[in-house]
Design a protein around this nucleic acid. Sequence first.
RNA 1: CGGGGUGUAGCGCAGUUGGCUAGCGCGCAUCGUUCGGGACGAUGAGGCCGGCGGUUCAAGUCCGCCCACCCCGACCA
Length: 475
Amino acid sequence: MFEKKEIAKKSVNPDRWYTDVILKSELADYSPVRGCMIIRPYGYEIWENIQNYLDKKFKELGVKNAYFPTFIPMSFLQREKEHVEGFSPQLAVVTHGGGEKLSEPLAVRPTSETIMYDTYARWIQSWRDLPLLLNLWNNVVRWEKRTYLFLRTAEFLWQEGHTAHATFDDADTFARKILEIYTVFDEDVLATPVLVGKKSENEKFPGAAITYSLEALMPDGKAIQMGTSHHLGDNFAKAFKIKYLDKNGREQFVWQTSWAETTRVIGAIIMAHGDDQGLILPPNIAPIQAVFVPIKLNEKVLNYCQKISQELVKSGIRVHIDSREEKSVGWKFHEWELKGIPIRIEIGEKEMENDELTLVRRDTGEKVKSQKSKVKSDTERLLKEIQDNLFERMKKFRDENTHTVSSYEEFKKIMATQKGYIYAFWCEDPVCEAKIKEETKATTRILPLDAKEEKGECVYCKKPATHRWYFAQAY
RNA sequence: CGGGGUGUAGCGCAGUUGGCUAGCGCGCAUCGUUCGGGACGAUGAGGCCGGCGGUUCAAGUCCGCCCACCCCGACCA
């Protein structure tokens, strides 16, 4: 592999690298509107792969897709107190339509709880109407002060699931099933290991009873929230009067969940796996898994490429043949490296003489000789190896950068230097959490789902604490 | 919203104490030669110098105001 002149070195300037690599690999572009981004076809294909995977999993749980309006009457957002407090600073509001001032301003949805639950109140009458399991694939707008491609933009794409259940436990079980889907998706598809657990009171979704979250540690030592699944309790049910008659004819409020994963995860995989040469896309999400670069562009070589690629396509591998005449071979190598294609297949006259091909791994740069007769199994094996390697190296990094600490001195020192996760006792008093954030930038990320009760003292105030929490600086 | 920076061709930039027809590299187009790690030559297209207003014989250049974007903080998926 050779140096890329047009992108900053990840090792030297990771922020600059991140922006460069997104623009140069044509995942996305800046837009004329401040804080909003254009997702280009190459980036959108990744999103489509994410959609295809998750949509199938949601449907297996009985979830149906629907669509609700972009515009939400302001009064709806005000019905749940914590919810409006959480979102009002970030709202984009439409005040005029058709040249006239609207009688009630309309918020551009920051999330759809309120407009959906107003409708749920009409749709849900009987225990027989439960559970109600809907998902939306849409866009939302949050007027962020400071934006960053994919990771934090004023408008972003996501899926938002919204369910209503008869009991607290049913809702909790469902929220955790979604959490399981997200965990498998993040780890097996995006090759990004996650910590899974509950959020603190402060970090909870506005209006939720419990927020479950998945957190991934990035190479710069900061954590990204990869997805959330909220148990909303009966907070919204009471605010929106979502009631049903149970089997005994008694009126009950429903119990609800909402859950989301966004285009932000694309930012996470860029940052997690890429290197100085550009993107490295996990094979399971890459729009192109193997790219053919014919060394000589004559008919014989192209036919050979065609024949082999057809065989790979038959077994479900996403391939592309780069037959452009105007670009040199070296130029193509650089471009496909920048774009993070997992495997490059080189075919020239040398290979053709012996019915061979050369497979080149993007993650290690290793060249692997293969035979025409074994290309399918070799490609499949390499794709799996690359997928596993990406996951393993992120996991190793995560483990090496998880620090179990008992003193606040140690805590501060780590946050001031290499960052990463800090695993420490916390008394669960929001005051300590706020102080720690102020002094170190670290916030609580999660309490692990399987956390055991222990005897300890809060890393900050020394008061008795029963659980260790994960802390990190958040994106 | 606070701090810093930048606006000149699609992109990256140069343009001196104001002075002639606004330049360079990359990219783009056409033709030819190349092609196992970012090829080369020839020709060519492409500009309201972010906007408005001043100063001046003369403004990309000086002054004022505005706008936009980027980077760093507080807020957030």
